[in-house]
Amino acid sequence: MSAPALKITGLKKTYRNGVVALKGVSLEVSEGDFFALLGPNGAGKTSIIGITTGLVNKTSGSISVFGHDIDAETELAKMQIGLVGQEVNFNPFEKTLNIVVNQAGYYGIPRSVAIPRAEKLLTELGLGEKMGENAMTLSGGMKRRLMIARALVNEPRFLILDEPTAGVDVELRRGMWDYLTSLSKKGLTILLTTHYLEEAEQLCKHVAIINKGEIVASGTMEEVIAKHHSGSGAKDPSTGLGAGGYRGGKLEEVFLKLTSEK
């Protein structure tokens, strides 16, 4: 049996200002999974992603990526990962193509290989005509797609997306989800954080819900919904509204039930 794409054991993180972000999180993402990591703002999602990708130092615990411990086999673990971060984090004065090609360089991929690969990715993501332009000229949605192209240029086995569709309009968002679904079908393991819960419900096979640094539910999407959905969120057939007049999917009801302040 192959090693899981991501295995997190007892992960703790306390920031220098004393904020306890993670209180011993354990999590496993299987190879080929499309996994949703959900939680309210400040729950610890980005801390998990930051520690996994080497952007944040952990306090204790262990993480392995496809069996490679991120402390003992850092380079091998990082080779497997592609990251689309929450914030736009590239030099806006650089050309779009160069941003992707340079990222390949940091993975040891020569320009002769990286350039055609970057051109193909940018074209697939609808940025073919923007390759020679400075990144600052791109719209918000284009910048997000550029970040996806950059994350894929090293041909990772594990793609991490931290709220990739934040601030992206509906049409572009659907296009991005279609693209990511096609990658998932090709075998790419995807870990996604998003606040669009209905989309996560439709796209993802497994889900974990984190609240205040602790995993409060995890399993297949169906399991989590079946276990925690009390039925109180059932929609009124005449109005289409859930409990309290709220319009949302089952996952959204579960999410609110597990994360809202008591």
Partner: peptide
């Protein structure tokens, strides 16, 4: 600049570059 203005340093930190 790469650390403060647009976190471009993250491009290298997430990579296997030691």
């Amino acid at each position: 600049q790469s650390k403060f203005f647009f976190r471009g340093i993250d491009e290298i930190l997430v990579s296997p570059t030691p």
